[in-house]
Design a protein around this nucleic acid. Structure first.
Lengths: 246, 246
DNA sequence: GTCCATTTGTTCGTATGTATC
DNA sequence: CGATACATACGAACAAATGGA
């Protein structure tokens, strides 16, 4: 047993500083440093992970960049933010209600919208004909000014003609649906996977490259069971968790 | 618009070859290459990702190592395995039933077991006194000889005294419970997060370091609602997805 | 069977990034 | 802040295997 070593992996395609940053981020989220409100000293971390102090410093600088910690000379590295947002997934899943009390300010921004023809996959999900008109909305959701999800949603275009304007006004899918006469909808199914962040998601969610995204593919239907929305949403994995209550 | 470029990120702490490997793995899982059964030629991929051919080759070699593709000189890089196991999460979630027809051979291995005192967290989850005796089982599940999950489970020790032997014999929690007189149990809640794989999980799940794990924290209870098992399970994110049917 | 385009395999060299000391 | 070692990434060239004309 190599005493204190905590398994970081060399030559893995993932730099040591990033592995360590990920581990410290997790430890913070798990409340392991709640007693002091500080990350352990760099020398101690270096010893625990079996790396040089410089490597730990690179990791802490990345976390500082993300706004998770703040290094103060002579005091240590203070923890700035340790919450992990919890999203319940149920038949009545709604984004803004899901956040609930966990954040004060909630916003929904419309990044882009388009009217196009349904691909085979989208048509299958929404149970419409291939090539039928659909609306696609690219949205960004924030809680307390921090981005928490980036979604791409598809809707049957004929049924929800004024949806884009309704969403832009309200910043809420639920409100937009209601404005168009759909009073209620239910979550039919949710698929959950995880990938490395890439592309525009990195910029929109303000992540450092290499971050992990939780990906949900969700289907919502009206009370008759007719699909009204198919959405692919990406959440920064270190900021959120999902809870399925049965 | 920088024509073909598909967003890989330099100096991010994640090597380009790994980012590209992740992307190709996703594309395979999404069936994007089903028409040919092959990955596009190295030169084309290099152009699409805006990297050197060598970098693409490193990515493909990593995927070959995982058994996902096989390169043949003169023919191309053939896709060997494209399935992604789907795990339904519901009130009746059971591992072996969940896999169902998706795999022929299913195994459950007991890696380690211990009888210890409940920590504050475990006591809270199982609704028992802090310090009360609990059994902890470390298990590895396989489907068709490939590891698909690594779990750490806690059980109230008094109620399930012979559990360790019962699990070792059957390789199934459901069967072990039944052997001890518990005919039925239900999933109360499931939390889902994602992290980078580290430590023993890498070896046990036969992953290359830097891989992503989907992590579930699940609570099972008997029909009276009394907690019978709390389990933290880790799944290779590129092999599985979860489905929540409401 | 021969030619040829396509595609993977291999080997140089060089520059930069990562990590240690 | 160097000096050192190794991993990562690029570029150019050539070799070897495949499959179709």
């Amino acid at each position: 047993m190599d005493s204190g070593h905590q398994n970081v992996h060399r030559q893995s395609g993932v730099a040591l500083w990033r592995q360590i940053a990920d581990r410290i981020r997790m430890s913070i989220a798990n409340g392991e440093y709640d007693a002091t409100g500080k990350v352990p000293p760099e020398m101690l971390l270096a010893e625990q992970f079996g790396v040089n102090r410089h490597t730990v410093r690179s990791a802490l600088q990345a976390l500082a960049q993300e706004g998770i910690v703040r290094a103060v000379q002579g005091r240590g590295t203070l923890i700035e933010r340790k919450e992990r947002l919890n999203f319940p997934i149920s038949r009545r899943t709604r984004f803004s209600q899901g956040i609930g009390e966990q954040a004060r300010e909630k916003e929904g921004l419309l990044l882009d919208s388009a009217r196009l023809s349904a691909s085979a996959e989208i048509a299958g999900r929404l149970a419409i004909e291939i090539g039928a008109p659909v609306l696609r909305l690219e949205t960004l959701r924030k809680a307390d000014r921090r981005p928490v999800s980036r979604s791409t949603s598809w809707f049957p275009a004929e049924r929800f003609a004024g949806l884009i304007e309704a969403y832009r006004d309200s910043g809420s899918i639920t409100a937009a649906f209601q404005a168009l006469g759909l009073q209620d909808y239910l979550r039919v199914s949710t698929e959950v996977t995880a990938i490395h962040a890439d592309g525009a998601d990195l910029a929109d969610l303000q992540l450092s490259p290499g971050a992990i995204l939780l990906v949900t593919k969700a289907l919502n239907a009206d009370s008759e069971g007719v699909p009204v929305q198919y959405a692919v949403s990406r959440f920064p994995a270190d900021m959120v968790q999902f809870t399925i209550e049965n």
